[in-house]
Simulated scan of single mutants.
Amino acid sequence: MADRIGAGLATLPGVRAVVLGGSLVGPMVDPGSDVDLYVYADKPPPVAGRRLIAAGGRDVEIDNRFWETGDEWEDDASGLAIDVMYRESAWVEGELDRVLDEHRAAVGYSTAIWANVQAGIPLIDPSGWYGDLRRRASVPYPEPLRQAIVAKNLPLLRAARSAYRAQIVKAIARDDLVSVNHRVAALLASVFDILFALNRQPHPGEKRQVAMVEATCPVRPAGFGGDVLAVLGATSGGGSDLLRAIDRLITGMESLVADEAVSMDPDSGSRARQTVPAGPRDGDDA
């Protein structure tokens, strides 16, 4: 089915490659996994042709722009959800430049697009462009990037004046549970960004992060999964229980960074770019 849809997408004007990605190419596929297809072109192909490819599907949604430009539908024969995402080829090349050449960190999810490119399986790649991109992505984790991610994200947990813990304390004081939830999510995004970097693992995306850490990250605080669950369990109530759980999680991360002797000088690697701590669409498990 993916090959059939990919062949149709490849007929659209300007398409350079069609790639299978997401959970189906990762280690933790489940019956609810979508069929994620990434279409690389200089610009998104015209909507009319895309609509024809989705014809015959159920619950068709064309040209949604909530996250990446995309089309979604349910395959009539299999019942599987199809999620097609259109990416500009220059943009993804720039994302690899950012992490592999410039070693610039983000606030959470720094290397998720890199991981997405590594894992993607090309269905259509007539010029070999995506194969070249994957070869470029198949390099050892740059140490300056590792340092830059830690240097950018670790102070945001507790040490900086505008750290997430301080923001959560203020949100609790004003009884603002929506803000508490928002800042806890941001804190966890930075925690996982640090942890994947320490283990020299490109970030696999926002799904099943605790399970991915346990499967791929031997360098982690003792009891890490339980500490994350304790934070999540206390979030809805706010108050001292949440702060104690956050402090335990952060202390474990700070101790781990100290044990790994990672430089906390932001200039020891390369300059880091400020971004919003919101993950890509799960590489979508980007």
Rank of each mutant, 00 (worst) to 15 (best):
D63I: 12
V35K: 00
P13A: 04
L96D: 05
Y109K: 13
D83W: 03
Y109E: 14
D97C: 01
S33Q: 08
A105T: 07
G57S: 10
D30I: 02
R87H: 11
G57Q: 07
P46W: 03
V107D: 14
Y109Q: 15
A81N: 05
A77Y: 02
V18C: 09
S33Y: 05
A2I: 09
F66L: 08
I82L: 12
A2Y: 13
F66C: 06
H103C: 14
T11S: 11
R4T: 12
V25M: 14
R50H: 07
S89H: 01
L24T: 02
E68D: 15
R16G: 05
V47R: 13
G32N: 08
V60M: 06
A41C: 12
S23C: 03
D3W: 06
R50V: 03
V18E: 08
G70K: 00
D42N: 11
G108S: 14
R58K: 15
V18N: 04
G49K: 10
G8Y: 02
V84H: 00
L9I: 10
A77T: 06
V15R: 00
G79H: 01
G8H: 08
L37K: 04
K43W: 10
R58A: 14
E68T: 12
E95M: 09
E102C: 03
E93G: 07
A7D: 15
A10N: 01
P27C: 14
V99F: 03
D97E: 09
T69S: 12
V35W: 00
S110P: 13
A2D: 13
T11D: 06
V15D: 05
S23M: 04
D63G: 10
L24Q: 09
G94I: 00
D30G: 04
V25I: 15
S89M: 02
R104E: 15
S89F: 00
S78R: 00
E61I: 11
P13G: 07
G8F: 01
E88L: 01
D34C: 05
N64Y: 15
G8E: 06
Y86Q: 11
L96C: 00
Y40D: 09
T111W: 12
V19P: 03
D83F: 03
G22M: 05
L52H: 10
E72T: 03
A105Y: 07
R16S: 11
D42L: 08
D3T: 10
T11I: 08
D3R: 12
L37R: 01
N64F: 15
A90H: 05
L52C: 09
Y38A: 12
